[in-house]
Design a protein around this nucleic acid. Structure first.
Lengths: 200, 200, 200, 200
DNA sequence: TATGAATGAGACTTCATTCAT
DNA sequence: CATGAATGAAGTCTCATTCAT
């Protein structure tokens, strides 16, 4: 039932170590984004961070742990952004809310903070990673409820799940060579209309 | 510029062979769905089809080709469905159109015809597989234009891209243990509102 | 001690069969020449002869047997040519003798009768194939002795071995893009000088 | 036009690694000599060096690279020997020159430095490996020209090609169970007569 | 006989992970 | 802590050979 207990990433003790870890995480983001979880190799991550493979394993004792660390970094960022939106939700127009959600994803991408693709990578890890997904849907549901306090909680949750799927697609859209900007506007519109209808 | 040699899947010429190929494709769908392209192994595909590894390679000379074959099967199905929708589009309500699109995906899943996930697996193959994506967006744009002939063609294309992303999420939603039905309804609503607004 | 008894190539019974075998042998020569024994595949040989793999195995029950058959065809040709040279040897100038030897090889190549490379392919088969080599050196020694009856038989044998090595190189030289003709002349000269000195 | 990426052999950086590489190369020479390029297996090379297959690939990322490394080792040796002969050529008798050439090959064999057979193994790699062949013929031509400065350069080149073929046969002759020594003498004689005639 | 499918051992290669220095 | 070497299970793919139709 319980996952074998995933040994967590080790915390570096010195300044030197902290830089190392940062470089490793940055490299990992790049590689995971370019190749995906399976095709990414630990060797390449280390190389791109100009570290040795031994060094990488010093801090991240397995590929799984590395991915998990990435996700946590992502979760921290996203959580802040979502909490902020929750707070402002009552005063936001549907338009602004939609924009807020979409923009959050664009920010993430721009800051290379993580490969969202990991969110539902493989099934085993899903258990662990699932936490983040649940957290996000809960937060989005909060936002919806903040705008329309009368809404059925169950429905808010369902809507959140659907909205999350659209958000997941944002990086793809932002990648599009042709008219990425317009595509983002369209995505926003879609979310806006959906939210608008449901919360008024 | 040109990919070396896109050696295609070999066509079986005997009844025995045709059965084999069918079994192999079915097994492949399962395995690819469960594990994703990278983590799926040819050995497992063969085993699940009760065939030897050699038999698998007799008809699908590489993992790439196998994935491609799956996609083609999927494309054939989806094409029919989309063409049908294009024809009926002028007479459909936004509601029915949204339902048609979502349902198409649900059908696909039910018939295990393919893992849509392959549509944009890794970047290299993207070139080949991209064809299908372009085809689908073009078709969806046609549907939109059929309902609203005055719409700007460029906008229709953009909208189609966004709608496609939502459609891609449908299998995920349909998988959800809790209230899959409701989630599908929500997805439909989202698409309906979006289409409605833009085409009236 | 004894090789497991190499099942020989089956003799075709009808005209149709004889054509088949001829086509297969021709195809085999091509493929063996292009790729070498190891890299050549039975499948390709069959394909190039426009026959099925089953058909190929009908006549040549193994790759070894096929190679052996090729060698035999070659041996027959070479034997005739060498016997002819033996007969004429007493009346030939060193020049003509050298030319005769070199030309024999060029003929073989032109008529695509065989890949001489097989002569000392792998060690196991060497035993079987060795026969041909011994036969050839004996014949060449005969030629030398015919010109210089006083020569020590042992020396003639040694010389023959060396000459054979030069002959083996002829196809390579004849392949050379630049000035193949001149290279052949040089090879002839080399042999002539060697023979001349030893037999006068 | 350009070969994709000629990933070279990795240089070991620790003493342990250097020993390994040496052992691997030695094992490779043996196996390639015994079986030839195609029939030699990486597994056997690793085993004979008492290393794991992973270790072998750590330093030689492909069978091609391993063969190339062998050739380079051989080329280094042969180059030294040939340059030495070039320098001494003006003062050497044809006899000594012939002996020098033949002896060089015998040395190579004795020191197990490489399987010359690789020089023109398969056609693809020929491009890379061809370099060595051209280098050798050029050097041999230099030797000839050093003895006979008036000779036509083109002819020297042709002669060099032919002489090289004889040299290639030396290891075969030296292998002969019966009277290897006499065979080498004969080969030397052949070369001597050829050189003598052309350079006086 | 002819044909195409079936089989599986075995080849090359990759990569996460462990260790000795 | 850092580094580079070591390991071997596992994956993709090939091909000689055998068989059923």
């Amino acid at each position: 039932m319980s996952t074998p207990l995933p040994i967590p990433a080790r915390q570096p003790q010195r300044a030197r170590g902290r830089e190392r870890v940062a470089a490793l995480l940055d490299a990992a983001v790049q590689v995971f984004e370019e190749k995906g979880f399976d095709a990414a190799t630990m060797t390449e991550v280390a190389a791109r961070a100009q570290a040795s493979i031994g060094s990488l394993y010093q801090f991240f004792p397995s590929k799984e742990v590395l991915a998990q660390a990435l996700l946590e970094r992502y979760a921290a960022f996203i959580n802040t952004a979502l909490n902020d939106l929750v707070a402002r939700a009552p005063y936001l127009s549907a338009q602004d809310m939609a924009h807020g959600l979409v923009d959050m994803q664009v920010q993430v991408r721009a800051s290379r903070s993580v490969a969202l693709s990991l969110v539902d990578a493989r099934r085993d890890a899903a258990e662990v990673r699932g936490g983040i997904r649940d957290q996000m849907t809960a937060r989005i549901a909060d936002i919806l409820l903040a705008r329309a306090p009368d809404m059925d909680a169950a429905r808010a949750k369902n809507m959140a799940v659907v909205v999350l799927q659209v958000l997941k697609a944002i990086p793809h859209l932002a990648d599009e060579a042709q008219g990425a900007a317009q595509l983002l506007v369209e995505a926003e519109t879609m979310i806006r209309l959906y939210v608008e209808k449901a919360t008024t």
